[in-house]
Each structure stands twice: as C-alpha cells, then as structure tokens.
Design a protein around this nucleic acid. Sequence first.
RNA 1: GCGCCCGUAGCUCAAUGGAUAGAGCCCUGGAUUUCUAAUCCAGUGGUUGCAGGUUCGAAUCCUGCCGGGCGUGCCA
Length: 581
Amino acid sequence: MAGFPVFRMSSSTSNPPRPAQGLDRFAAQIRAGLADALSLPPEAISLDRPRDPKHGEYAFPCFRLAKERKMAPPALATWLEEQLNLDGIGVQRVGPFLNFRIEPMPLAKAVLPDAASEGFGSGQEEGTILVEYSSPNIAKPMHIGHLRTTVLGAALSRLFNHLGHRVVRINHVGDWGSQFGKLVAAWNRWGDPDQLEAEPIEHLLELYVRYHQEEKEDPSLPQQAREVFLELESGQDNPTRQTWRQFTEVSLAAFEKVYQRLNTEFDFVRGESWYEDRLDQTLDFLQQQDVLELSEGATIVDLSEQGIKTPCLVKTAHGTTLYATRDIAAALSRWQEFTFDRCLYVVGNEQKLHFQQLIGVLRKAGCDFADRIEHISFGLVRFAEGKLSTREGRVLRLSEVLDRAVELALEVVQEKNPEHPEPHKVAEQVGIGAVLFHDLKHLRNKDVVFNWKEVLSFEGETGPYLQYSRVRTAAILRKAGRPVPEVQTIDYQHVAEARDLMVALGRFPIALREAAEKREPMILAQQLLAVAAAGNAFYRDFRVLGSGQGVEDARLVVVDAIRRTLDIGLNILGVPIPETM
RNA sequence: GCGCCCGUAGCUCAAUGGAUAGAGCCCUGGAUUUCUAAUCCAGUGGUUGCAGGUUCGAAUCCUGCCGGGCGUGCCA
C-alpha cells in the first residue's frame, strides 16, 4: 500500500435548510412578522423560549434593539405589539417583553399531523458522521464506566441517523498495547487453561491484578512484559500472538452478550490491532511531514506552538508504539476510508489531553480534517468510596448492574401485575430501561457518583416512567378495537384543549435538533419526560374511549401521536419498549 | 506547581446573558364504580461555594479565593 497522501479537506458539506416541523412552524412566522415590522432580515431576530409557560411559547425581549434605536424597551414592545398581526398567534406585551402564545386550534392543526406521521422529527441532513464508542479493553470485564460511552455513543448514532446523516459506528476495542505484554507474561507464569475455559474474563482479570501486585517486588516481571509485547508487535505468528488471539476471542464473545442486552450494534468492531500494519507508514508519514523529534530516547511530536505543553509520544525508548500512535494511524485510515464530515470519539473526560494531542499532531502534519474530529467527553463514574481501579481489582461489572436492575424489576412486576404472562421478559426490558435512561438523563460532562438507589429507581423521572406512559397509550389503542383514524379526518375542535400536550409534542423536533447539535442526548431525554408528563395529564383530563364518535376519533389520534413520539425517542435512546407491564 | 472539568432545594439534577431560579426523589395531605395508581394533583423546601468586576440585566461571562474530581512524556 502506498504511503498516506497529505490530507487536504474536500469542500465541506452544506445541509439543505430543514423544513420546519411542529412548533418550529410558528417560530418562522413570528420571526418574519417581527422582521417585517422592524425592517430587519429574519435571521437577525432571535426568539427566546420563556421559562414560565404562562408567557406563551415564544418571547422577544426588546432590550437590545431598543438600545440600538434609542427607545425605552417597554415602549418598543408596545409599538411592536400594535404593529404585529399574526394569524393564529396571540401577541402580548409584558413590560419589555413581547410574548407569543399560539392559539389552540392552529397549534393542534400544526403539531398533530407532524406528530401522527411516520418519522416525526426526522430530517434529510447529509454528510457522514463517524462515531467511536464503547471501546472496552479485552481481558477485562465491562464495568460501569463503559455504560456511559456505550449508551451515549449508541444514542448519538441513532439520533444522527434519524436526522438523515450517514453514520458509521466503530467499536475501537483495546486489544493492543503493553498491557497485553503484561497479561501474557502473567499468563505464562500463572495461567490455568481450565480456568480460562470456565470463566475466561474472571481468570484474565485475576492474572492482571496479580501482575500488578507482584510487579513491585519482582523486577524481572516488567522486563518480561516488555519482551513479550515486543514479540507481539513483531508481527510474527508466535505463541505469544496465539495466546493473545485467544484472549481476544473470549473477550469479544463476552462483550457481545452485554451489547445485545443494551440493544447496541456497531458497523465495525475493530481493535487497535486492526491498525497494526499501518503503524510503520504512519510513523513514516509523520517523518515526511517533518513533525517528529527525538527526546530522551523517545520519538515525540512537539505541540507547544499549539499551546499544548505535553508533547505527544509516538514511540517509546524501547521501540514500541503507544496508544497515541495507534490512534493517529486509526484517524488517518478512517479519513482515507470514509472521508467523514465529523468524527466523534465518545470517550471520558480524563482523556481530554490525549485527544488534544491527536488533533494537534494531525494538524501539525498538515491534515486539515483534524478540525472535523471531536472529543465527546463525559464525566467519570465514581463510587462514594473512591475511584474504580481495574488494577486493584475494584470493579463493578456492568452485567452485575444490569442483573440487579432486572431482578428488582421482576419483583416490581410481580407485585404490580401478578397476572402478567411474561414477567421475565418485561423485567428485562424495565430493568435495562431504568439503568440506561438514568445514564442518559444527565448532562454528559458531569461526574456521577454511582448510587444503587437511584439507578434502580422506577418512579418519577425514570426509564420505566416513560415505558409505563407508552404502555398506557398502547392499552387505549388496543381497547379501541379499531384502527386509528386518519389525522386529516378529525375535528381539531375536540383536541384543542390539550394545549400543554401539543406544545410538548411540538417541541420534540426542536429537542432532537438541539440534542444532535450539542451532542447531548439528555435534551431528548428531558423532552420525552415532558411528553410523557403531558400525556399522563391528558389521560386524566380527557376520557378517550366512549367519548362520542367525533371526539373519540380525535383523541385516538392524539394518543397515537404520543405513542409514536415516545417510540421514536425511546428507540433513539435505546430504551426497550414493552407492550404491557 | 501547572492545565481542564465541576460546585444550584435535605438528596439527584434542570435552567440559548433575560421575567417570580424549576423538576424528580424524600416528607405531608389528597385523587380510582369506566382507557394500567410504575400515574395524577397540592404543600414544605434557595444568600445558585465565597468575594469582587462587566452589563439595562449574571446561576450563566471575567478575575481572585475555597472545596471536590481528573490530567500532567515512555499506561490506555
């Protein structure tokens, strides 16, 4: 294979304007009205979302513009209130604010047809987005820390996909590096083939822990580990490599079980080793681009001119490659293969420097696509007692968390619905849903202290709450005993009262867009809670079945719209959807 | 030491520089002859870590402290 070309960026993809859906339809109208009255381009008008719903759905604070035009803000607001005449939107001035409240009928007419149709909130956006996530290390169990990257990455992937992007999902499995020198060295000393067969991950973890215990007293151990890793990197098919391959196989099989439970897939499961035969050409490329330096026996890339004080090490004094080397090789390879528009790495906060270095090295080497790389970082999961440490054997297995959630869910199902025909199936869905949603409902950047009580909670703002809300829609639609009427046939008069619900549904497409733009699935999670809450209030206020021909038709459409919206959102987040519970 | 992140109700968390800082949990009280009460309604709860500054306006931006977390060249 020829060396890497110098990577210049192709012209960037521009997305076609997104057609407004839901509540957004009114934003355009309000903006146009204001722009017209003020003789400004509509883009210059930025609308607020009022904190308090009593102020309507949109607001325009007049402070800035009043200053420019040397008017008192309330006076400008008063003047605008008189000027504006928006069809279907009530305009009310409150002090220096101009508030817009959409009238019930136009609201329902705009929102319901969108929400009751296929692919609510979907888009036709273009461009390829590569998402790297999960990326566990082989020979170790997946622990609670892997939940965040897996769940965030999977949710973001589905979100981008819903909006129309081409998404490439990569699991960058940690199957390479000096740690495997350590592990194989430990295996050579203490390994037990029978145990490996019986409980592979447990046995490998034991070996890894023991290595780190004995390394301190036995200097020959790290020496051996380095030698073994050199054997591995030599590319020859020696016993070391065979051992390593066996470890990889048993590990991937174990991971696959967790991925199935979490409803997660990948387009490519490529270990770091996949890039092994590109390491030399990567180093050659960096050499050609004249970015390499020797320092204290190691090969480095100095990044101080980019404000990064710590140089990026690409080769140790012992001649082995490093994590960064392999990530640089991977980035070059991916650009060649996919010509991505964005490349997202869903990896914890603690690796911030690593990704700054990765981007810095690529930039210094003349790869313009470095600017398309983003580190989607997230906070650490900690215990109240302290940090997790695989080396010290202090781990909380992901499978254990899922098992306990499912176990508790089973108790709850048997208590709440003893007649349920498939309690184990629902318990799996509810338990997994609770754990998954709990992880997705917070801003990703904050550290979280693991708390069993919260993770295993099924009430309030939880996954099971959304599942339950969805189950109620299904129950009504099932008991109606007839197909949901076409939305075009209903009389909106009968549903106009459900204003809060229409607003919540109408904001769903906006939430999807914001969640994607900010790479923050939490925004979608919160909007789903709002839809569910408004839906549960709707069932309280309005009887659906037997409410009279025309009324029932209209309300069935509303219930169906809630169901569809929850389905789309839950599917994106990866929360299972039980039919009954 | 230096760099990055975080600090909001008893707890867990929200709040594009805008209006009286909101939810859930907890606690208290209430709602079911009919679509799943894993629900809904109401109440209690705040000097947004501290001190300055910028601004018509600061939880949000800037500076300095305090507290916690992570990182800081031969792990990943």
